[in-house]
Amino acid sequence: MNNKVDISVEFAGLKLANPVFLASGTCGYADELADFMDLNRLGGFITKSITLKPRKGNPDPRIVETDAGMLNAIGLANIGLERFTKEKLPILRKMSASGTAVFVSAAGETIEEYAAIIERLSEEKAIAGFELNISCPNVKMGGISFGTEPATVEEITETAKKAAGEKILMVKLAPAVTDISAIARAAIDGGADALSLINTFTAMVIDIETARPALANRTGGLSGPAIKPIAVYLVNKVYREAAQKANIPILGMGGIRTASDAIEFMIAGATAVAVGTGNFLEPDCAEKIADGIGKYCVRKKLIKISELVGSLK
């Protein structure tokens, strides 16, 4: 039996060694993970969201474990564009040189802020593209407020795409909207090269002893296995109703911990997948997932992994 199945994928014109990414906000800027995994084995990597100016983030408690998941309300805490370019680009350049597609997640309070971050980094060779974070549930301005109105999504995508120049622009979608396909079509019409979905769901945990929310921010984004079946459904919906026709790839995410989870997303229509909360328990799970996908392809006698994408019967 041939054990060397080709699990490389083409994603928005990029050739990736495998379809597994690390999701923004769960893998820092890569340097933190170097002791725990082989960074060179990643298909893709998405940085923690960067804003123009550093952001302090929300007060503690910022996280809480829930049934089959967790809530986080970090509040886009990050070191800001200046320090990012000085301190973090070197390790990202190394990753990029070894073949990993590096995406920078951009966030802002105004459309101009998104554009300024992207423009500043658009000439950087190590960066394959940008993920437009218009779906963060934990900040009052910007974030999710940009991601829920089709007209706004189209406008911000258009502006960001101009700033990105030759680089790939991926738009990250919020899950809790009336019609996610309408948002996806707006992003595509605005010039998005790829879509990533889903971001976390706004949720709440209450401490019944104190009758207070468990998080200082009161609400947080729900992630982990609890959201996986919803994410699979939404990926399939966006694939069928928007992405497939436009030939725009989907980066699927939401509760992926195993190769089986990843394969489910690919069958639903994702060209590649990202691991988020799963990294916290197993910092090397992306490698294991890539290996597991390979084994599945051998067992199913698939020649190319792309045969899986959207193969839902």
Binding site: G25, C27, G28, L33, D35, G57, P59, R62, I63, N72
Partner: peptide, 28 residues
């Protein structure tokens, strides 16, 4: 002590408010 998700600095969940030397501002 804080609740932690990762323990290695990637989740940013375990914030401790600290003073910045020579400033009235604080950081997490």
């Amino acid at each position: 002590e804080r609740r932690m998700a990762c323990g290695i600095g990637v989740c940013q969940g375990c914030a401790v408010e600290c003073r910045l030397e020579g400033s009235s501002e604080t950081v997490y």
